[in-house]
């Protein structure tokens, strides 16, 4: 599984960013390789329109299979995530990345549909 997080920083102890399209960073954790990579989202964050769909497109390119975030994506982004089969879990906006991952593993986050 490749698990993506919306985060304000680039490490496990970074706080989560509750926003999806205008998040500061995307972090992707590859469970098989045990590797955490990050992708700067500032170019998208500055878009006047359609930050959501472009961010969702980026997640697709990052080959994420699961997304963990705070509030959940808007309608446009949600339709891309659905099409690309990326499962989305919300409610992790107040945690740091590590806590969010653990909460996901313990089935404590609700799935966004």
């Amino acid at each position: 599984m490749r698990i993506a997080f919306t985060a304000k920083g680039t490490g496990w102890d970074s706080p989560m960013d509750p926003r999806f399209g205008r998040t500061a960073f995307f972090l992707v954790y590859d469970e098989e390789k045990d590797e955490l990579i990050h992708s700067d989202n500032s170019a998208i964050e500055g878009a006047a329109h359609g930050a959501g769909p472009v961010a969702a497109q980026k997640l697709f390119e990052l080959k994420a299979t699961v997304l963990i975030t705070g509030n959940g994506p808007g309608g446009n982004a949600a339709s891309i995530l659905e099409k690309t089969g990326i499962k989305t879990f919300v409610g992790a906006g107040e945690m740091n990345v590590k806590q969010a991952y653990e909460a996901y593993k313990n089935n404590e986050l609700s799935e966004f549909k």
């Binding site: 878009a47 329109h49 359609g50 497109q57 697709f60 446009n76």
Partner: peptide
């Protein structure tokens, strides 16, 4: 598209009417 209303996703093109 200056409004991010048309997006290429792998082998398909998606259109976002609201944008």
């Amino acid at each position: 598209c200056n409004f991010n209303a048309v997006i290429r996703l792998g082998t398909q093109i998606m259109v976002f009417p609201q944008l």
